[in-house]
């Protein structure tokens, strides 16, 4: 079963990182190391448990986590996440308004939106509303962008 291998991989990965963090935590000043070390030890034990549970026959829980194969766009979430990171970069560089509009114009086609009113509503309507509401009403100073400073 494929999911078992994913679970095993995750358990190994988390346990590995936590062992490394545990070594780091030993350098913390007295008292400050107690809790992180406790949490890390618990995590490592739980990873072991998760690993053991992946062996079939023992539990049903891992079997039920097998994703139902449906017609979905598996890649799209990663694309969306990438665009969100780009959005952060754009906001830093060209400011909130321009960055949001650009991101929205990349995001909408990526999500498969086709109708023009939707583009207009999101870019002009929502972004402008957020901008005015946050900067004028809530007094949040939205990023202006490094290119303008």
């Amino acid at each position: 079963m494929k999911t078992h291998w994913i679970d095993r991989g995750v358990a190994f990965f988390i346990a590995g990182v936590c062992i490394w963090l545990y070594v780091l935590a030993r350098a913390f000043p007295m008292g400050g190391d107690l809790f992180p070390r406790f949490a890390l030890a618990v995590i490592i034990v739980l990873c072991a448990m998760m690993f053991v549970q992946t062996f079939p026959g023992k539990s049903k829980s891992s079997a039920e986590s097998a994703p139902v194969i449906q017609r979905r766009d598996i890649a799209r979430p990663y694309l969306l996440f990438g665009l969100c990171l780009l959005y952060v970069l754009l906001m830093v560089l060209i400011g909130y308004l321009a960055g949001s509009v650009l991101t929205a114009l990349l995001l909408l086609p990526a999500l498969g939106a086709k109708s023009k009113p939707v583009y207009l509503m999101i870019t002009a309507g929502v972004i402008l509303f957020i901008y005015l509401f946050f900067s004028r009403f809530l007094m949040v100073q939205l990023p202006v962008g490094l290119m303008f400073v």
């Binding site: 321009a98 949001s100 509009v101 962008g145």
Partner: peptide, 8 residues
């Protein structure tokens, strides 16, 4: 985009 730049 130009509208956005203008507003800023």
């Amino acid at each position: 985009v130009s509208l956005a730049f203008l507003t800023v």
